[in-house]
Design a protein around this nucleic acid. Structure first.
Lengths: 130, 130
DNA sequence: CTTCATGCAAATAATTTGCAGTAAG
DNA sequence: CTTACTGCAAATTATTTGCATGAAG
């Protein structure tokens, strides 16, 4: 299990129950929307406020703990920040899978890249065979 | 100049003034948000409704005339559908530049790719020299 | 003609804000 | 202790919908 308390403190954020729970949700699912985090957490923690999730998602993105994944035609999902990778997004079941960014060595003239965002939309193995 | 009337008809959409004007805005800027389209068009065309723009953007995306570009931390922009390319998004001035998708030949096992979305965030040439 | 699009206003959904009370360090 | 965080309610912003009128083919 990941130590979310250290992760937050390393990034200059107080380790509150709310934040560690949000990180647990994100990590458990891999990629999740704000609404889904709220639906999931309020079962065990009914006083949790949606506003708190919004505030913390924004803050944790700014501090580099998590990363936004904007998706065509859908609400953004969030993931724990990790090494660069690409997203395979299934247009049929909606599932997102991570893959290594190996086969693709991008280097652009006259542009200083800070980070890459590569989403491939298509059909996952399961949905192909249907 | 592009013939927006034919473009719309080819994609089974009636060619209305509103639609051709929206396409002109998108094409002029390359990439633009819904709000920006509205601000721009209502100068010359004050009765245009924001709801009409929302409806038409959705419709033209569904019919494959335009494409959504979701962007981390910002509202989506839209562009005319064209050959695959990547986006260089400047974190400083916000400008988006298109580049060819040549250096990067992605092929993934067990995943049937329908379309790719590659955004590179960084500093454009202008903003680097500041 | 007939069908579909527009514009308006109203409804709904998404996100942000302010502030009094709490919890973290 | 002190500072920053939470939860709530209210405010704001974004998006969608219904419907009477008007335009496209």
């Amino acid at each position: 299990m990941v130590d979310y308390i250290s992760l937050l403190k390393q990034n200059n954020l107080k380790a509150t129950i709310q934040r560690t729970n949000i990180l647990k949700s994100i990590n458990r699912t891999g990629h999740i929307t704000i609404d889904e985090i709220y639906e999931e957490l309020k079962i065990d923690y009914p006083t949790l406020s949606l506003a708190t999730i919004y505030k913390n998602i924004l803050l944790m993105v700014q501090h580099g703990v998590i990363v936004e994944i904007p998706i065509s035609g859908e609400k953004s999902k969030y993931e724990i920040k990790k090494d660069e990778h690409i997203h395979l997004i299934c247009k049929s079941c909606g599932n997102i899978e991570d893959r290594e960014l190996s086969s693709c060595n991008i280097d652009i003239e006259d542009f200083n890249i800070i980070f890459k965002q590569i989403n491939l939309y298509g059909l996952c193995r399961n949905c192909q065979s249907k």
